[in-house]
């Protein structure tokens, strides 16, 4: 890997001529960049641009470079950028295990091998035996963990967090936050966190960029 990390090069996003986002920065593997701003300030727009799902109503320029590869023009599914939203967005028609299987790369072949991998993953997030459960019957903290694991199983090269902790109560928030940042650090993933919560920024510990 030449030049590891996530580089945001002169990114400008406009809507109706108004500049919503203007950002240049780099995030090294394992580091966290926090972007703060009130709602409507374009935080989520920036993430949509990076994962490649920006609505046609916006005009954007600038490059997104991940581990030395320019991913700006790649379709979302080829970018290897994982994202967690404020809601867990577990697919309601799939079981917990099927949700994880949706994330797990097809490079893990064979039914038994995939099932084992998913059982191990559930074990890692203290949810052994939950594979056949309806995601809707899980608690908020459990859903958050499944969503995190589903994303990690897709083997992302960078991690985007769109206020993922704001729905959780204080106690769970600390636990999930620690879990997410520990996993990212262990896997050496650059993390971009958008939030309006100063506690999130403080826990992330990295540089903070403010949008207005």
């Amino acid at each position: 890997m030449s030049d590891p990390g996530l580089i945001l090069q002169n990114i400008t996003i406009r809507r109706d001529g108004r500049v919503l986002v203007d950002l240049s920065d780099r995030i090294d593997p394992g580091d966290v960049l926090t972007v703060m701003g009130p709602s409507g300030s374009g935080k989520s727009t920036l993430l949509a641009y990076i994962i490649g799902t920006l609505d046609a109503g916006f005009t954007a320029s600038g490059r997104v470079i991940l581990n030395g590869i320019d991913i700006t023009d790649l379709p979302p599914e080829q970018r290897r950028v994982g994202i967690l939203f404020q809601d867990e967005l577990l697919f309601p028609h799939l079981s917990v295990g099927e949700n994880l299987a949706f994330g797990l790369r097809p490079t893990v072949k064979g039914r038994a091998a995939r099932r084992d991998r998913i059982e191990t993953a559930l074990n890692d997030i203290w949810l052994s035996g939950f594979a056949d459960r309806d995601p809707e019957t899980l608690s908020g903290g459990q859903k958050a963990r499944v969503a995190l694991m589903r994303m990690l199983l897709s083997d992302p090269k960078a991690l985007l967090l769109d206020e993922p902790f704001s729905r959780l109560d204080t106690e769970r928030r600390d636990m999930i936050r620690t879990l997410v940042f520990d996993q990212a650090r262990a896997k050496g993933l650059p993390v971009l966190l958008v939030t309006h919560d100063h506690a999130d920024a403080a826990a992330a510990g990295g540089p903070v960029h403010t949008l207005d």
Partner: peptide, 29 residues
């Protein structure tokens, strides 16, 4: 339908058609 399900599925490696057939249509059964 919440389009963020689509974003999540794309980020997890699903194509546009994959999102339609594997996520959106089943959810809208």
């Amino acid at each position: 339908w919440d389009a963020r399900y689509g974003s999540v599925a794309r980020a997890l490696g699903a194509s546009c058609d994959g999102v339609l057939w594997r996520v959106r249509l089943p959810m809208l059964l």
